[in-house]
């Protein structure tokens, strides 16, 4: 059994310690907001936070999360009121929506470390997350909007 804390809730999971965190979150914890896109850290749909740092959960072994706090899209806010979630709704960013958990979780780290990101900062922070629907310009707008509205909360 491995002890894991996800969104401040304790879990005991049977998965092998080398199991990618993504599948533990989805299958053992039942939190499906974090998505599987490529399995090789190329697309970023699986991005979560580990002690406040972004991680591609599809290549992060469960053992690397032990003793740390895992945050998924479900744990970002209890009621979709994080500034980025609000901005995402205001700009109507998502199309199919599949990558957007990863996009938002990445953007959270950006705004945590940079209250007023430039276009270049957004490029550097967000180019790891692929959006096949091509919503990048709206993501950019939403990040700027969230930054103007106070960023983290």
């Amino acid at each position: 059994m491995t002890r894991l804390s996800v969104n401040r809730k304790a879990y005991e999971v049977e998965a092998d310690p080398n199991t990618p965190l993504l599948w533990v979150i989805r299958d053992d914890c039942g939190l499906t907001g974090t998505k599987f896109g490529c399995g090789v850290a190329q697309c970023g749909s699986c991005t979560v936070h580990l002690d406040g740092e972004a991680r591609r959960s599809c290549v992060t072994p469960l053992k690397a999360a032990v003793g740390k706090e895992v945050t998924t899209i479900e744990g970002l806010s209890p009621d979709s009121t994080h500034a980025l979630q609000k901005a995402w709704i205001e700009v109507d960013v998502p199309q199919c929506g599949y990558c957007q958990s990863g996009q938002i979780m990445s953007a959270v780290i950006l705004l945590k470390e940079n209250k007023k990101p430039t276009d270049a900062d957004i490029d550097a922070a967000m180019s790891g997350i692929v959006c096949r629907c091509g919503t990048y310009n709206r993501i950019r707008d939403a990040i700027k909007k969230a930054a103007m509205n106070g960023g983290a909360k």
Binding site: I73, S80, Q85, I89, P94, Q100, I104
Partner: peptide, 11 residues
């Protein structure tokens, strides 16, 4: 505003 957006920003 799209009706499906809220469900796509919170998982």
């Amino acid at each position: 505003k799209r009706l499906d957006t809220p469900a796509k920003v919170n998982g």
